[in-house]
């Protein structure tokens, strides 16, 4: 029972990270209709930047997170402007290839700057509290709470503000949105800024618990893709629910089944789901 509870908490924690990464990805997909494979390297960059700010510059953890968000938001905009915008009229294939080019550039760049070694944060929020018989560190609770708050904020942003509504309008009906005079470029810029910043938050949240290393984004981005396919590409609730589901499956599967193949579970689910329902579990807008 204890194990179950502990693993469920763990699953929710990991699922939070997945949900944040998947949210950025699904927003970008909703607007651009191409999968941004380079999203994962931005996540890794977010972790390194937070690490840099905390360990080398001695910033406060939250300030470090904010800095990482800011830098990544700018980075997202730059990538969109320099790489994705010029390819908007080209076949999808070209955007995939450009994204892979970006992965090379960022991963090798980070390798040059930070090397292949694992980086460990100085202790952050490691105090343990007792939670219905399970012991959890404060950082883990922070992850879950911050994610929940961000999801609520993002929803409010999209439902209640003009800028947010234009994102949804564009995602749901591109031609209609164009006719209504929505500035597509501006919306795209905004989405890339917000999406990349969320990847930074996800990375900043999880990296004090795990380690920071060059390939940390690889598995996460792929799982985020699995999640948004399951949840329906472009769907915000789908990304959140899918994130928690994959987090829980992995955490419980790792505890009760095999840890060796734990990593494969998500991908196997994906191929299974594609076989049965190509538009994803909750998806209606396949592309």
């Amino acid at each position: 029972m204890d194990l179950l509870f502990q693993q469920t908490l763990n699953g929710i924690m990991v699922g939070s990270v997945y949900a944040l990464v998947a949210l950025g990805l699904t927003l970008e997909y909703g607007i651009l209709h191409i999968p941004n494979f380079a999203h994962g390297v931005l996540y890794t960059l977010g972790a390194y930047l937070t690490f840099l700010a905390v360990a080398a510059l001695g910033y406060n953890y939250w300030l470090a997170m904010a800095c990482a968000m800011l830098v990544l938001a700018v980075m997202g905009i730059v990538i969109d402007r320099l790489v994705y915008q010029p390819l908007i009229a080209a076949p999808h294939l070209n955007s995939f290839i450009a994204a892979i080019g970006l992965i090379y550039i960022f991963k090798a760049g980070m390798l040059i700057i930070w090397g292949p070694d694992f980086k460990r944060f100085p202790p952050i929020n490691e105090e343990v509290i007792n939670f219905f018989g399970a012991t959890v560190t404060i950082q883990r609770i922070i992850i879950v709470l911050v994610t929940a708050v961000l999801i609520v904020l993002l929803n409010l942003f999209i439902k209640k503000t003009m800028a947010g509504m234009s994102i949804e309008a564009l995602a749901q009906d591109r031609e209609g949105a164009l006719l209504a005079g929505i500035n597509v470029k501006r919306v795209e810029t905004m989405v890339f800024a917000v999406g990349s910043a969320m990847a930074a938050v996800a990375a900043a949240l999880i990296s004090p618990i795990f380690l920071v290393y060059n390939t940390m984004g690889d598995a996460v981005i792929l799982k985020a893709f699995v999640i948004i396919i399951l949840g329906g590409m472009g769907s915000i609730p789908g990304a959140v629910i899918g994130g928690y589901i994959i987090g829980l499956i992995e955490s419980l599967g790792g505890a009760y089944l095999s840890t060796d193949y734990n990593e494969i579970v998500a991908f196997a689910i994906l191929i299974g789901v594609l076989a049965v329902k190509p538009t994803g579990l909750f998806g209606t807008r396949a592309h």
Partner: peptide
């Protein structure tokens, strides 16, 4: 890095 730049 050069590979990546070439691709893009």
């Amino acid at each position: 890095v050069a590979y990546g730049l070439v691709l893009v």
